[in-house]
Design a protein around this nucleic acid. Sequence first.
DNA 1: ATCAAAATTGAACGAACGTCCTATTTTTAA
DNA 2: TTAAAAATAGGACGTTCGTTCAATTTTGAT
Lengths: 206, 206
Amino acid sequence: MIGDGYAMNKRHYDSEETRSVIAEKAARLFSQKGFAGTSIADISRESGFSKGHIYYHFENKEKLLVYLALETMSSWKERWESVSAGYGTATQKLYAMAHFVQNNYKTPLLQAGQEVASNPATSPETVAQLMGLAATPMHAYYEIFKLGVETGEFGLEESELQTTGFLFGTLMGGLCQHLFTMEAEPLEALFRQSVKIFVEGIRGKG
Amino acid sequence: MIGDGYAMNKRHYDSEETRSVIAEKAARLFSQKGFAGTSIADISRESGFSKGHIYYHFENKEKLLVYLALETMSSWKERWESVSAGYGTATQKLYAMAHFVQNNYKTPLLQAGQEVASNPATSPETVAQLMGLAATPMHAYYEIFKLGVETGEFGLEESELQTTGFLFGTLMGGLCQHLFTMEAEPLEALFRQSVKIFVEGIRGKG
DNA sequence: ATCAAAATTGAACGAACGTCCTATTTTTAA
DNA sequence: TTAAAAATAGGACGTTCGTTCAATTTTGAT
């Protein structure tokens, strides 16, 4: 209790937990039913808090999605960097990424983001924020392929680095769409086979 | 004018054209904005026909989407079979497929179908119809890889045939999502590179 | 114990939604 | 030319939507 001079302005009445419950339920709903397909009433019912209270924590529906997408992506990046450090070769990192994506990448949420971004009625500011999101995983993929070329694991031209990362990301994203409908084991096999095809398809020495 | 005994019951007052205009515009809207994100008013505005008239041609919004998805897929199959006959090797067919998909595959529409199918409020009959749709392109992909194995172009186990087709389809579908946001040329390059990676990644002789 | 601040509710709003219904116009057959 | 049929428009319906707001309960500091 001594020395509480300044840091005491932290407000821990904890409606922080409420906020995170709302965020969690909203994320799942947006992922499963899309942005337009999810109503505030849905989020209210699922989270157990009133519609009005959702607006106490989030300015509006659009800002809620943006918040979710941003938070998801920044946490994704941190976690991947931690995982990535445990693997040495690009090939290993690629397999690790596939496994990581299956368990962490909330692609459907980013899809909801794309839904919002492609709506002409959406504010340019929101669009800009949402479009920047795809850059995070793309950069991570790019880094792996760049490493692979440097180590000689992969035989890619400089110009193919970006596009290969893009294609790998597209495939990862596509597979994630089946997260809610397929069982984990066969889906994991598909993730692994994806990596195998890419590794074989671009390996050095032609 | 002679011999009009029976086939005369064909009604060609041609509101058939109207129907197809509505269908066309609705398909583009569902593709771009999703099912929930597209209103009947949107379709009315875009097609130039009144809201009420849309219900003259289609029972309701859900049936309209099902009709579009079904029609799109059956026409897709016919056209592909016609194109496919012009190419001899599995590798050639794969490149042809990528090009064909970019110009014909209305993947976003099937995504809208998935959106509807995953909604618990959707009738089981509709769900069943929509879920069967993905089978059409999957079978076409499967046939190509099967051919490739038979000719020795590809080195795949029997058990990998289905999954490889599935992965190729996932990648094609993912790339189609960029049809509305990317320019045609760079997108075509991505389609081609996809095929290259697959062909190299699974070719015979290891 | 008291009181201001924070958290939370529930009702109310206008707008937009899917659908339906009644005209009105256009087409076809007689 | 006329009358039935088909095509089309436009508005009315009940509902649901996102959002706001005044009222209430809970919390933290004094």
